[in-house]
């Protein structure tokens, strides 16, 4: 596609664009380096854990590493769509987004390598629900943007990527990892990495919420696209959490299991459901605005971005 003009030649960057402000935040706050995280204690902890305790961490690690790899590879169509639509500030923000996801993928892979499970085949921990979301829906809705970047297609892509994968599953994953290992006083390195990740994900969620909202402001039919897709994906999103908690429950129900790890499955499922409700509510706040411009002005005024 040939360029007809350039924003920074005709004028300048829109310094007040919400996504430009988020880009500034990303540059400032996203400076951590996965290679700087010290996993020595993690290695010692892991070696000292019983086989049963080790295996408890495997489904989570298998979900995280595939999840981060998937979002690293699948963000490209969104970047391309924003660039094609001339959304310079959004595109600039997304360059930091991509870099963040690459670091997240690196972080988990480094951890696996350093505690000695790098070569392990873990795909058996991906349930049918997990596969439906990460192997099919996510790449499907993202790749759709290559041929269709209509508001509806962008909303669906941001819904599965930012709201479901990041907003429900990643959030629930961090939560369960902390619940299990922070409480047990184990694996400080990966827990620190997860804190960094969590901060990055906060920005990614802001991108998702903003992108969906600006396309839904004053357009109820688009807001319905978001809610319908969330509802459609929810059974599998919940299925992912249910599978992980059920594995833990089965493990703990066996009389031979030698584990001092403690985890509340029911609370975890409730936590995931709460994330689902929160994401819907966050996007629904767009009902207060008649159009995208009002939304932008309010975001800047409130200092949300």
């Amino acid at each position: 596609m040939a360029h007809e003009s350039f924003q920074t030649v005709d004028g300048e960057i829109n310094w007040n664009a919400p996504m430009y402000r988020l880009y500034e935040k990303a540059k400032k706050n996203g400076k951590w380096n996965p290679a700087d995280i010290d996993f020595t204690q993690d290695k010692m902890d892991f070696d000292g854990m019983t086989e049963d305790e080790k295996i408890t961490s495997m489904p989570l690690v298998a979900s995280f590493s595939a999840g981060e790899e998937a979002v690293t590879l699948d963000i490209l169509p969104m970047v391309y769509a924003m660039a094609r639509q001339g959304r310079l500030e959004d595109t600039m923000f997304l360059t930091t987004f991509m870099h963040d996801e690459a670091k997240h993928t690196e972080m988990f892979s480094r951890w696996q390598q350093q505690v000695g499970v790098g070569e392990m085949e873990l795909s058996n921990f991906h349930s049918d629900s997990y596969k439906r979301i990460f192997y099919e829906e996510l790449p499907g809705s993202m790749e759709r943007l290559n041929v269709d970047d209509s508001p509806q297609a962008v909303i669906r892509a941001a819904t599965v990527y930012n709201m479901v994968v990041e907003g429900i599953l990643a959030e629930s994953g961090y939560h369960s990892f902390r619940e299990i290992f922070k409480k047990a006083g184990l694996l400080p390195g990966i827990l620190q990495g997860i804190d960094y990740l969590n901060q990055d994900e906060g920005r990614h969620l802001q991108f998702g919420i903003y992108t969906i909202q600006r396309l839904c402001a004053g357009k109820d039919e688009n807001l319905k696209v978001f809610h319908d897709y969330m509802d459609e994906l929810w059974p599998d999103a919940f299925g992912v959490v249910e599978y992980l908690t059920s594995l833990y429950d089965v493990q703990m129900a066996q009389d031979w299991t030698n584990s001092s790890l403690d985890f509340d499955s029911e609370a975890m499922k409730k936590y995931a459901k709460r994330q689902f409700d929160i994401r819907k509510k966050q996007v629904d706040r767009v009902k207060n605005f008649n159009n995208a411009q009002e939304l932008d002005e309010q975001l800047v005024k409130a200092g949300t971005v």
């Binding site: 489904p59 921990f125 594995l247």
Partner: peptide, 11 residues
């Protein structure tokens, strides 16, 4: 396949 079942095998 079903990891939960694999765990029960030991029992």
């Amino acid at each position: 396949g079903n990891m939960g079942l694999a765990l029960k095998l030991q029992t």
